[in-house]
Design a protein around this nucleic acid. Sequence first.
RNA 1: UGACCCAUGGUGUAACGGUAGCACUACAGAUUUUGGUUCUGUCUGUUAAGGUUCGAAUCCUUAUGGGUCAACCA
Length: 555
Amino acid sequence: MSEGKAHLNFIEEIIEEDLRNGKHSGRIHTRFPPEPNGYLHIGHVKAITINFELAKKYGGKTNLRFDDTNPTTEDTEYVEGIMQDIRWLGYQWEAEALYASDYFEQLYQYALKLIEMGLAYVDDSTPEQIAEMKKTPTEAGIESPYRNRSIEENLELFKDMRAGKFEDGSRVLRAKVDMSSPNMHMRDPVIYRIKHEHHHRTGDNWCIYPMYDFAHGQSDSIEGITHSLCSLEFTHHRPLYDWFIEKLGIFPSRQIEFARMNVTYMITSKRKLLKLVEEGIVTGWDDPRMPTIAGMRRRGYPAAALRQFCEKAGVAKRDNLIEIELLESCVRDELNRIALRAMVVTDPIKVVITNYEEGKTEVLFAENNPEDETAGSRELSFSNELFIERDDFMENPPKGYFRLYPGGSVRLKSAYIITCEEVIKDENGVLELRCKYVPESKSGEDTSGLKVKGTLHWVDAKTAIEGEIRDYDRLFTDPTPAGHDDKDVFDFINPESLIINKNARFESSVALMKEGTPYQFMRKGYYTADRDHRPDHPVFNSTVNLKEGFKVQKA
RNA sequence: UGACCCAUGGUGUAACGGUAGCACUACAGAUUUUGGUUCUGUCUGUUAAGGUUCGAAUCCUUAUGGGUCAACCA
C-alpha cells in the first residue's frame, strides 16, 4: 500500500480508536449476516468486502451468520448459493457457517429473563390494534391494555405460546420500553410472534420465532462480535439493539451504520429482481445482465475486480450513486492484466489474398498477452482466404479512418501487411475484398520498411470455427431506473440488452477455451465462455468492451 | 412537519483548525503490430448566510436541500 498518511474511512477510525483504548483487548470480530431468502447482489458485495477486509486489515475474524428467523421466506437452497458466492469472491469465514436459528433456545431464555425483569409482556391485541396504538412519529403512542399483566401471567402465557397452545397471530411477546418515544422502534416492539411453520433447519421444533430486533444484537453478542456493521436504515434500531444488550447484561457488541452502495443502471430490490426473472425479461438469477453475484460471475466480472471496485468506491454515511463506469474500469483493469488474447471476427467479410499460393497454409505465432510475458504464445493458421471485420473496411473512408479501404494498406495482426486492390459487391453490399500481401512484412521479421496506420484482427477462413457471441448491454436505459416516482423500472428496460450473434468466426484455438476463463478478443472486448460453450460450437458472453478511441459512424 | 442521519468538481472519496488531494468520467497530446494498455496534460468543487479564530471544508448558529423511521420482514 502507499506510504504516507493512511486515509481511513470512518469505520476504520472507530476501530483504531478502540484499538488505542484497548477495547476488547484489541480483538476485532465482524460478521456478514444475510437472510437466506434470495441471491446475493452487488450491494451485498459491498457489505461482504467491508466486513472481511476490515477484519483482515486489523488481524480479526469474520463470521458468516445466516439470519434465519423467519421460516416463511427462507430456504436451504439460498444458504448454498450464498456460501458459494462468498467463496467465489475470495473470502473465507471463521470456522463453520453460523445460524441465528442455532440460538433459538438461548434467545428464548433471554425472553424469559426479560419477562422476569418485568420488561416484556404478552399482548393479545391484533396486529391492527397494535399498529393503531403505536400512533405516528409525531404523536405519542398509547399503552396496550395487556401491558401490565403480572410477571407470572406473562411467563405462563409465553410458555404456552412456545408450547403451541395458540393460533398464529393471536398473541405476541413485546418488550416494555417506551410508548411515547419519538423513535417508533422503541414503542414496545414485538419480539416474538407465533408461526406454526416448518423452519429449514429447526424443522417443527418451534412455533414461535424471534423478530430481527430480538435476534440480531443478541446473536452478535453471543458470537462476541465487536463491530456489527450494517446499512443506514438500521440506525433507528440501534437504541433498541443497545437496550437489549444492556438489560440482558450480555457482551456489548457495537452497531455501526454505513451508507449502502447504489450503482447507476443497476437495481437491487429483491422484489424487482424477482420480477425480472419471473417475467422472463432475463433468463434467471444468473443471467449475465443481473446485478447478482451469480450473474456478474457468469458475465465474466473477476472477483478481484469486484473487490477493487468496492475499495475504490469507499465507505461513508452519505447517500451515494456510483457510476457503473468505475466498476467497468476495475473490470478492464483486472482483465487487461490476466486475459489471454485471441482473434474473433464478429461480422465477417471475406478477404482473398490474390498473390498467396492457393491451398497453402502457414503457421504464425501470436503472443497470448502483451501484458504478461509468461503467458506465452499460440499458433495461428494463415492462408489465401481470410475473414476481417465488416467495420474495418470502408469504400469511402472519412478523415481519420485508418483501417482498410480501396487502395489502402493495413497490417493483419501477427501476420502480414495487405493492400486492398479490388472490391467485389452485389446489390446488398460488399461480398469480398481482393488484396495483395507483402511477403517481406511478416510479423516479427519485417524487412519491408512499410509503415501502416492500422492493424486489424482476422481469422483464417479455412480453419475458423463458427460460433455464437452473446453481447450484453445495460439492462436499463436510465441510470436510476428505480428513482422515478412517476415511472416503473420496467419502463426503462433496454430492448437491446442482449444481442445474439451466431455468425462469429473464432480462431481455432477457441476449441481449447474453458468456461469462466476470461479472454480478450482483440479490438473487440473481454469475453468469457458461457456454460453453453462447446469446443465445436463456441458460445461467449461479452463481459465489457474495450475503450473506444474512434467510432465509426454507421451509414 | 416529531426524531435521527447526511451535505466537498459530472460521480465517488480524502484533507481531523494551516497549500482542497486521489480515482472514475470527459477532452487533448505522446508511445503502440489491439483506435486497447502505458505515459503526459487540461477542465470542473467545499449548499447558503452569519459567528468563533491570526487562519474554517473542518468548530458554533440558523436556513436550505436530500435521506431514514410508524411489518407479527430483515
